[in-house]
Each structure stands twice: as structure tokens, then as C-alpha cells.
């Protein structure tokens, strides 16, 4: 289970910001945008083990 680090208010803020950023990108470029976002966040996180944890969580329940 991923630890809860952001507060609910921060999470809501981030939710809106990413949603708006997604809307600003043309539909056919959203995958590329999300891949770049994941890479940038991984770099800011600075911990490959944590990135692996996030990858595992995100890969579940996709269908």
C-alpha cells in the first residue's frame, strides 16, 4: 500500500491541475504527455525503488 503523503487539500489541488493540463493537450498527445509527466515526477522523487512501487500500484485494476 502506498503511504498517504499529500493532504486531501493538496490532492484536490493536484487533481484539478493535472485534469486541466490534460485538457490543454490534444487527445492524441495525452499518452506522451503522461509518460513525460511520470518521468519528470520520478526524477523529482529521486528514488527508483519508490518509482517501482508507484508503477506496481498504477498497473493494478486497469480493466
Amino acid at each position: 500500500m502506498l503511504p498517504k503523503i499529500l493532504t486531501n487539500a493538496q490532492l484536490e489541488e493536484v487533481y484539478d491541475r493535472i485534469a486541466e493540463a490534460l485538457d490543454a493537450v490534444p487527445a492524441e498527445r495525452r499518452q506522451l504527455f503522461l509518460a513525460k509527466l511520470a518521468l519528470a515526477l520520478a526524477n523529482l522523487l529521486g528514488d527508483p525503488a519508490k518509482v517501482a512501487q508507484a508503477l506496481e500500484a498504477a498497473a493494478r485494476d486497469l480493466d
Partner: peptide, 18 residues
């Protein structure tokens, strides 16, 4: 964008709490 984020949160709720 908001629909994707909503779906991402719903998907996470099945295995994550954050």
C-alpha cells in the same frame, strides 16, 4: 481530463488508500 482523473482515482481505490 477530469474524466480520466476521476477514473484514475476510482481505479486506485480498489487497491490503494491514499
Amino acid at each position: 481530463g477530469f474524466r480520466l482523473m476521476r477514473d484514475a482515482v476510482l481505479s486506485f481505490t480498489l487497491s490503494e488508500a491514499f
